[in-house]
Each structure stands twice: as structure tokens, then as C-alpha cells.
């Protein structure tokens, strides 16, 4: 990173500034630390969602038919559109992350961050429409549930919970990206080379990955036959 326009001094944080390294090296080391830190957190999150998917796997194994019947009730159009939206936001996030390494690409970085946040919001809007339809179709577990088998409610227990937890993660991601947009708007020099950009976008990538597994779990089961 010999790019002269990277504002090393403004980006260095405690304790990385005290390592008796030249500033650019120190910032690079700080970035290593930040990336490592977020990956540890992602590994932790893998276990968090791993437990959620274990619940799905075990209960699906115990109630295969009821699960297939219940999964047919989800709206595959909304699900597929949302998957496409998130994959596209992953594209803009990855582009923003790569562009942020170069001060010359600050415009591209900013526009990609804006696009990422907007695509995330679009996902939430579609999700909201889908929730409205689900409620209208009595797919909320409890008295008056649409399907007769009791264990079909388990699938929708998972549906509501997993989409809500994923949605909360996505909202946090949107908030973090929005924070970067604000920083980039007020202090454009603080975006290039800033470790927080990569950290935020790695988190975004992880939230994307979770959805990639929720999609077949919620929308693709029980469609054939």
C-alpha cells in the first residue's frame, strides 16, 4: 500500500500505533488485526446459525412429510427475488471492498456502498410483503393455523424465527454500511484504506451466506412431486 492519498495517521488506532512500526506498516498490521477479529466473530456466528440449522435438520428428519407440506406454503417468488437481491448486494459489497483499497476509486467505493445498503433495504421490503401475505394466509403457528398437522407448525416456527434473526443481522449490516456512507460523505479521506470498510463488508458477506442456506431450507423443500 504505497498509495500516497491514504490518510494513514487519521486511521491508526490504539494499540497498533504503539508498535514502533512505520505508520503504513502499522496501519497494514491494524488492518490484519481487524480482519482477523471479524473472521473470529464470523466463525462464532457460524456456530450461532449452525445451531439454528441443527434444529431444522433434526426436526426435519423427525417430521419429513409435515415439513415438505409446510414448505410448499412459502412463496418461492419472494424467496428467489430476495436471494437475487442479496447476491447482487454481495457483488456491490465485494466491489466496494476492493475499490476502497485505492484512494483513486473513492467515487466507486461510495456508490457501491450506497447500492449495497439500498439492495439490503429492498430485501427487507420484499420480506415485509412476504410476511404480510404469510399472516393473511394464517401461516403463523398457533390456533387457526392453516395446515392440520401439528408438526407443520414446527416448520413455520423455524421460518419466522430464522427469517427474523437473519433480518436483524441484515439490519445491523445496513446500519454499519450506512455508517460508512456517512463517514465517506463527511470525511472522504477516511474511507480509502480504512480497515472498517473491509470489516463491515466481510460481515455483509457472511449475512449473505446465511441466506444462501436459508433459501433451500425454507423455499425449495417439497416442491417436486
Amino acid at each position: 500500500m504505497s498509495d500516497p492519498a491514504i490518510a494513514t495517521e487519521a486511521l491508526l488506532r490504539e494499540p497498533w500505533d504503539g508498535l514502533k512500526l512505520p505508520e503504513e506498516q502499522a496501519l497494514s498490521y491494524q488492518r490484519t488485526g481487524a480482519t482477523f477479529g471479524i473472521w473470529i466473530f464470523i466463525a462464532s456466528e457460524v456456530l450461532f446459525f449452525g445451531a439454528l440449522f441443527l434444529f431444522y435438520t433434526a426436526v426435519r428428519a423427525e417430521h419429513a412429510e409435515a415439513f415438505a407440506a409446510a414448505a410448499r406454503e412459502t412463496n418461492i417468488v419472494y424467496g428467489t427475488v430476495n436471494t437475487a437481491l442479496l447476491l447482487t448486494s454481495g457483488l456491490t459489497a465485494a466491489a466496494a471492498s476492493r475499490a476502497s483499497e485505492h484512494a483513486a476509486l473513492i467515487r466507486l467505493t461510495r456508490w457501491c456502498l450506497v447500492a449495497t445498503a439500498l439492495l439490503g433495504l429492498a430485501f427487507l421490503v420484499v420480506k415485509g410483503l412476504e410476511y404480510r401475505e404469510d399472516i393473511a394466509e394464517h401461516l403463523v403457528p398457533g390456533p387457526g393455523f392453516k395446515l392440520p398437522e401439528a408438526s407443520a407448525q414446527l416448520f413455520f416456527g423455524f421460518y419466522w424465527l430464522s427469517t427474523a434473526i437473519h433480518g436483524i443481522h441484515l439490519m445491523i449490516g445496513i446500519g454499519l454500511v450506512a455508517r460508512l456512507i456517512v463517514i465517506g460523505w463527511r470525511h472522504p479521506e477516511r474511507i480509502p484504506g480504512n480497515p472498517q470498510v473491509e470489516v463491515t463488508l466481510l460481515y455483509w458477506g457472511f449475512v449473505d451466506m446465511v441466506w444462501l442456506f436459508l433459501y433451500p431450507a425454507l423455499y425449495l423443500a417439497g416442491r417436486s412431486g
Binding site: 433434526a58 403457528p141 401439528a150 407448525q153 414446527l154
Partner: peptide, 14 residues
């Protein structure tokens, strides 16, 4: 939400 409720097929051992 039915998660572990045995009355609705949930698995408390899980």
C-alpha cells in the same frame, strides 16, 4: 412459536 413443544412434535432432548 413451536420449537421444543412435544405436543406439536418438538424435541425437548434437542
Amino acid at each position: 412459536l413451536p420449537i421444543f413443544d412435544p405436543a406439536r412434535g418438538g424435541d425437548p432432548i434437542l
